[in-house]
């Protein structure tokens, strides 16, 4: 934005800037229009394929059938979604609490880190599908078993990211805090915690998706016992009954949940960092 030196107040905008403004406008619209177009075309192609090739609905239901099931089975799907959502969010909250507490313990005490870090890794690398049936045996409450299962999957990225973050403080700032006689608590509160925040938020984004995956896996394994857990159990049950319309409806809802969780975590991350952190800054 510049002002001509003749004193007039019309901003001097040349052809290049007009072109750039136009390009930006088109890009903004395309960001929404293109994916929407792809969606519409895909659904259309899906519909045409199912109709023309006469695919039986127990192999691949058409989009119309899925939409119909979504509406018809809504009284069944909605409570299931609430259960899965609660499972995922609780697991995520516990993962945040557990991951952060452990990360602080690890960075405050070398002994704690040396003693327990290997076991945190083992817990992480052991496939959750292999643990879930055991949890089902030892824990009576199916919801609790599923929660623990989802927690195991979700907590590690929070733990490992936060640990790295807590160790990433600027050395000169650490020296400065020491010279000013800062206590351990003050260093943690005013130096290590803010340094770790962007790392933690990165971990949170991953953990959000993983909590949902953990919840789905847990429901697959634990919900099989006829305990009637959330969306994933509904999906599995629908597949046994060759009710593929309901199966697809459940699948779509799980995807939607994943997208919502990711958007939520990204928003939290942006709000926490946009004022100061490089990752959230717009560049000229």
């Amino acid at each position: 934005m510049s002002i001509t030196d003749t004193g007039t107040e019309t901003p001097l905008v040349d052809q290049e800037e007009l072109d750039r403004a136009r390009r930006e406008k088109i890009m903004r619209m395309a960001r929404w229009l293109l994916p929407s177009l792809v969606l519409i075309l895909s659904v259309l192609a899906w519909h045409l394929y199912v109709t023309i090739a006469e695919v039986p609905h127990y192999i691949l239901p058409g989009p119309g059938l899925v939409a119909q099931k979504m509406v018809e089975d809504w009284p069944l799907l909605w409570p299931a979604m609430v259960i899965t959502g609660r499972l995922t969010l609780l697991a995520l909250l516990m993962a945040v609490a557990g991951g952060v507490v452990l990360a602080v313990a690890f960075t405050q005490s070398k002994w704690a880190e040396m003693s327990f870090f290997p076991y945190a890794v083992i817990l992480q690398v052991t496939p959750v599908v292999a643990i879930a049936p055991l949890l089902q045996i030892y824990i009576d409450n199916a919801f609790m078993a599923a929660l623990l299962c989802a927690w195991i999957v979700a907590f590690f990225p929070i733990l490992s990211n936060t640990t790295i973050g807590l160790k990433s403080a600027d050395h000169n700032l650490e020296d400065l805090f020491s010279i000013y006689g800062a206590t351990r608590w003050q260093k943690l509160r005013y130096l290590y915690a803010p340094t770790a925040l962007p790392f933690f938020l990165g971990g949170l984004k991953i953990a959000g998706g993983l909590a949902l995956i953990g919840a789905v896996v847990a429901e697959f394994v634990i919900g099989r016992a006829g305990t009637g857990l959330g969306l994933a159990s509904t999906l599995l049950e629908a597949s046994y009954r060759f009710n593929f319309g309901r199966l697809y409806a459940a699948l779509i809802l799980i995807s939607v949940m994943g997208v919502v969780i990711f958007a939520l975590m990204s928003t939290i991350s942006y709000l926490a960092l946009f004022r100061w952190h490089e990752s959230a800054l717009k560049r000229e």
């Binding site: 000169n172 020296d175 400065l176 130096l191 803010p194 925040l197 952190h277």
Partner: peptide, 11 residues
């Protein structure tokens, strides 16, 4: 103390 870098807390 003043270091070679400004060493400010960016947040």
């Amino acid at each position: 103390v003043v270091f070679q870098e400004p060493t400010l807390m960016p947040w």
